[in-house]
Design a protein around this nucleic acid. Structure first.
Length: 275
DNA sequence: AAACGCGCCTGCGGGC
DNA sequence: TGCCCGCAGGCGCGTT
């Protein structure tokens, strides 16, 4: 569920809390994440080192340490990072606990275990495998109609599928893909090769708009997160189509429809988004 | 070679 | 009431 805006929100809220803190211990309670947690990497590169900065790449969160090593975290579907002020009881599915030098903790909790935590040795981030095949960051100039339109043109896949392909553009999952295409007025099942130039431009524009707006909204709900209880305010953004099948389109009143595409639920207004 | 399908995993909601 | 089934989804990998 955490897509780009949620990861960006977490990044920003964590910055004030853990940048310049030293990681004094890492407790691994469960190694079986999507990628097994390599416990041995922690004492070697992480424990005893200070966090210099936090960055985000696609849906990955990166803690860069002063020794130039890094912790890479992906939240998968159900991952959460909980900042803990006091010795609160362990919540179920807490897999990894980072102990900081101010006696606070960052707890990684992930019921479905689709997330991952990996240590990258000093100065190896540039060659880190998982970052090699990533496409454009949607909120940078690298993601433009000039860039995206030709990629679509040469594909028979649906535009929704293309938007969710991290090899082309990163950070967009099922929820935002649906919302972006509604805003752009493009049917999610339209083939890339059948997109007009104008549609491609509208999609790129809508993507930037929707993601930026979602980040702004996420940024308003940092308080719960800071306390380490409650959810970090995901999905407070008003969704136009996602999970709204059978309800009226907010633009024209037509009933929102649901289809399944590549095994994923797809929502659209049949009037605003013609195939 | 592009594109699709599956499996990983748990919680939850609907149906019976 | 309680159980079971299906769905939710990012990502990597296997298959066609």
């Amino acid at each position: 569920m955490p897509e780009l805006p949620e990861v960006e929100t977490i990044k920003r809220s964590l910055e004030a809390l853990i940048v310049n803190r030293r990681i004094v211990d890492v407790e691994v309670l469960e190694t079986r994440l999507r990628v097994p947690v390599r416990e041995n990497d922690f004492p070697r590169w992480i424990i005893g080192h200070r966090i210099a900065r936090i960055s985000r790449k696609a849906k990955y969160l990166i803690w860069e340490l002063k020794n130039s090593a890094a912790v890479v975290i992906h939240l998968g579907m159900s991952g959460r990072l909980v900042y803990v002020n006091e010795p609160l009881p362990l919540e179920k599915h807490t897999h990894v606990i980072f102990h900081l030098d101010n006696s606070r903790q960052i707890r990684f909790r992930d019921p479905r275990r689709f997330g991952l935590i990996e240590v990258v040795a000093p100065n190896r981030l540039k060659s880190y495998q998982r970052f090699r095949q990533l496409g454009a960051e949607p909120l940078t100039d690298a993601f433009s109609a000039d860039h995206f339109s030709p990629l679509c043109q040469r594909s028979q896949r649906s535009i929704k599928n293309l938007l969710m392909d991290a090899g082309l553009v990163v950070g967009i999952g099922n929820i935002y893909a649906n919302e972006i295409l509604f805003k752009a007025g493009v049917h999610p099942l339209r083939r890339g090769s059948e997109l007009t130039e104008g549609q491609a431009r509208r999609i790129v524009h809508a993507a930037k708009k929707v993601l930026t707006r979602a980040i702004e909204k996420g940024g308003t709900t940092l308080n719960d997160f800071r306390d380490g209880r409650g959810e970090p305010g995901f999905f407070q953004i008003e969704l136009a189509v996602y999970e709204r099948d059978g309800q009226e389109c907010k633009k024209c009143g037509t009933l929102i429809e649901k289809a399944v595409s590549s095994g994923r639920s797809t929502y659209y207004c049949p009037a605003c988004q013609r195939l």
